[in-house]
């Protein structure tokens, strides 16, 4: 149920504020970071209150992913197609960023609904840029062809220094994610989460969704990939996407969900940790209650005479009172 939304909340908020605020402008110069090291730099100047300069830095590409001028395949075309005249790409991009765009808010459509759609699109710049190659491949899948001059195994940037792999065919695309986590507890939780995830796919209600597999060793599709890209400590997840999953409007959602699969798993791992803590806290509370009930009346009285339950520090135990 908790899928991350593709527009960045903060970007959208700034854009909407600016569009609604009318003529008066303020200098804004701020940096934000999103998961997987996507950084934004937002600038508004006093002189041009309706022009936003947005710089985006993408995650550090792994060696096996192929980029064109620092951007994923087809990103520039995707930006042009998505925003039209509102956005102008500045070349070269700002120092430390991969893409700099000038967004002219005066060129937005006047109709409120249309305007909001395009603002939301600008806020989802991450999806447009990083998802461009994936979208290209899946579009070909929708028309049941294979994109020309594409290898039979494509590596795309997923997280900093990590990639996921696509094996495009005319009637299906196989997508493999090597899953990596830092913390030892996270690895265990993620592994069992993924196994449950595969298990949940088997229920009758989910008959039409892409099939999904998990294995602790690299699947056959990844033959010939360098060993570095394959050391995953939480196993490999494989999705098989068929043309029916990328028809029409489903395409955008599919692209975004595939693009943020790791964030999705990581979010759920954190949620389950939080959930376990809640349970543990409740358990401790109920145990303390049970202990309290077991106390005899004499003990309760004694506590009252002594006053609060703070541990008094005395010179004797000062040495170990530091912690």
């Amino acid at each position: 149920m908790i899928l991350l939304q593709s527009p960045s909340r903060f970007l959208l908020q700034i854009l909407q504020d600016r569009v609604l605020s009318g003529e008066k402008g303020m200098d804004i110069d701020c940096h934000t970071v999103e998961f997987d090291d996507v950084r934004y730099h937002i600038q508004f100047s006093m002189r041009n209150p309706k022009v936003m300069v947005l710089s985006v830095a993408l995650p550090l590409p792994p060696p096996e992913a192929i980029l064109y001028d620092g951007l994923p395949l087809g990103a520039i075309e995707a930006i042009k197609a998505a925003y039209g005249p509102v956005v102008q790409i500045l070349d070269p991009p700002k120092d430390g960023f991969d893409l700099t765009m000038k967004i002219n808010l005066t060129k937005l459509p006047l109709d409120e609904e249309q305007r909001n759609t395009i603002l939301t699109q600008i806020a989802s710049i991450r999806e447009v840029v990083l998802g461009a190659p994936l979208k290209l491949l899946l579009k070909h899948l929708a028309s049941k062809t294979v994109a020309p001059n594409v290898n039979n195994l494509v590596a795309l940037v997923h997280r900093p220094n990590e990639s996921f792999f696509l094996a495009p065919q005319a009637d299906k695309v196989t997508i493999v994610y090597p899953m990596r986590f830092q913390d030892s507890i996270d690895i265990v939780l993620a592994t069992s989460f993924l196994q449950e995830f595969v298990e949940a796919r088997r229920t009758a209600a989910l008959n039409n969704v892409p099939s999904c597999m998990w294995s602790p060793v690299p699947p056959l599709e990844l033959k010939g990939v360098s060993a570095d890209a394959l050391n995953a400590n939480a196993g490999f997840v494989t999705f098989v996407v068929y043309p029916r999953h990328v028809e029409g409007k489903k395409l955008d959602r599919t692209v975004w969900n595939l693009l943020t699969f790791h964030a999705y798993v990581s979010y759920h791992v954190k949620c389950s940790e939080g959930f376990m803590h809640t349970r543990m806290r409740r358990r401790v509370e109920s145990l303390i209650q049970a202990l309290d009930r077991a106390k005899s009346d004499a003990e309760k009285l004694k506590k009252l005479v002594h006053g609060g339950s703070f541990k008094r520090l005395s010179l004797k135990n000062e040495g170990d009172s530091r912690f």
């Binding site: 991350l4 960045s8 909340r9 903060f10 934000t32 970071v33 999103e34 998961f35 997987d36 090291d37 830092q182 913390d183 964030a263 990581s266 979010y267 954190k270 949620c271 939080g274 803590h277 809640t278 806290r281």
Partner: peptide
Amino acid sequence: NWDTMERFWQQCIFNYLRCDPEDH
């Protein structure tokens, strides 16, 4: 209320700031 506080932080981090807490 620590239960709701934890959830509040969880939403703040993942849904509002959209960052990975392990990174910051």
